[in-house]
Design a protein around this nucleic acid. Structure first.
Lengths: 136, 136
DNA sequence: AGTTAAATCGTAATCATTCCTAATAAGAGA
DNA sequence: TCTCTTATTAGGAATGATTACGATTTAACT
């Protein structure tokens, strides 16, 4: 997934091409880490000083729906990052200081399905938290 | 962990024995599932019709600190359940309908530490979501 | 250029959680 | 049992993230 693909995806679903959406996508793409809505709004300030929270939240929700971004809950706030791969299922190590991530290759579900036979499984979450080399 | 042990733990740490705390502990213990603060307050209404949110949240935070309860985020709200074991590290399958849980024996961290050598790991989260037999 | 529906702004509303202050009650000691 | 000290609590106000809404603007199509 990159910015062009994301824009194409929006078009394919009948959504309009707007400067704000492109800017948000570029900002997300450039910053390879989990960010809060406020941080993303802050990052738009240079180009769009009056961008409203409504626009941020609405577009992020749209991006999430189209799987352009991945989300998680950190410190009681929803955080967003540009989807690092669109094809492969994966998990993350997340730095609690800077929000940067590192892919974790292993998926625990491979080992768990046997244990939960008969249950209807609709999803799972596996995240490792800590501090990256720079923040440690 | 049971109610008596929890009360003893409170005493050992210099906290007072109050009817409200005991009632909360009993309610949590009887309901073997994740519940929101509101649900727990609702459950207290019979015995303590005027119990305040402050009391609920303050005591739940205390219980969490003493590891009497386990917590997780569901549907954007913090949820609480009586700690099912105090000794062993474990994870849960969680029913998104009723909140009931089932222990998952496997911990993915056993397989992940090698992958993340050099990182400072401070925690992790692994939860499986779905619907239990009754709710399916 | 004109039309139309989507997108956006600015602000108000919502909802979970936290904070604050006066009143209450538990535990310790006399 | 009585009093004193301090933790606990009720009630309501404050906070902070997120959502909703009416008015205005703008992208996309004719």
């Amino acid at each position: 997934m990159n910015v062009s693909e994301a824009i194409q995806l929006l078009k394919d679903h009948g959504y309009k091409y707007t400067g704000k959406r492109v800017d948000m996508l570029e900002f997300l793409s450039e910053h390879d880490k989990y960010m809060s809505a406020k941080e993303i709004l802050e990052g738009m300030k240079d180009t769009y000083p009056n961008m409203s929270f409504d626009t941020i939240y609405r577009n992020l929700a749209l991006f999430e729906e189209l799987e352009i971004v991945e989300t998680t809950e950190l410190f009681g706030e929803k955080h967003f990052r540009f989807s690092c791969t669109h094809e492969e299922h994966h998990h993350h190590f997340i730095c609690l200081q800077c929000g940067k991530t590192r892919k974790v290759e292993i998926c625990p579900m491979d080992h768990v399905r046997n244990e939960l036979q008969g249950y209807s499984i609709s999803g799972h979450k596996f995240e490792v938290y800590g501090y990256c080399n720079k923040c440690h």
